[in-house]
Amino acid sequence: MTEDSPLPIVELRDVDKRYGEGPLILDKISFSAKRGDFITLIGPSGCGKSTILKLISGLNPISGGRIVVDGLEPANAVEKLAFVFQEPTLLPWRTVAQNVEVPMRLHGSDAKLRAEVVRKSLSLVGLADRMDYYPRQLSGGQKMRVSIARALSVSPRILLLDEPFGALDEMTRDHLNEELLAIRQQLAWTAFFVTHSVSEAVFLSNRIIVLSANPGRVHSEVRVDFPYPRTEETRESAAFGKMVAEVSKILRSVERLH
């Protein structure tokens, strides 16, 4: 994969991670992402896939190796990143619109810009008519949409998604997968996505990185070459089913290692 190499937007080189004096969580993780990549990290529980996202985001420091995010250390690249957590992590005392504008408020953007971005972000996730609702009035899927709109409000170049749809039912999840790709078609960020679902990984990404556990290591990488935009038909095609089966097989072989 060295034939076309503009500068990678995110690069991990021999990244180690341990907490304090604890055991090694990640062992010499190396991979890089090009602009526009949709990379999904998949692997048995305890392989440190969520930890990798936290390291890229600069939330946690690395113990060894090097991470470069758009030419910078992760801690200095925070403005280029947005994180979508496993939970919607909305402020329950703020309305949908007020939640979306939290990052901009913290950065001190002016009210006019905020109102505009809020409207735009919420339209993207189809919740423009729910601006004045409180989170408790929304369904789980809607809350996650607000969380995504909030992440998009800072115009990130890199989106980190840590199992965002794990708690949703399959129908809602499929639907949100399609929406996520549609939004990506418009905004063209680079995505790092963590999931347990193989079909979700195959549907969303152009690259799947399979990790093994204890300590987390890169086991292999699978390229998914279905053209974007991907739709419901993609999911129903025979080639898609074959791909899911193939990745599942790799995942099973990784899990058997333990």
Binding site: L59, V78, L81, F83, F85, Q86, T89, L106, H107
Partner: peptide, 21 residues
């Protein structure tokens, strides 16, 4: 909620902002 604290950290919120908001 520790996730909300992490979210504020990602937004580079100051200590005072985190307490107030």
């Amino acid at each position: 909620d520790s996730n909300l604290v992490a979210f504020f950290k990602m937004c580079k919120a100051t200590k005072v902002q985190t307490i107030l908001f």
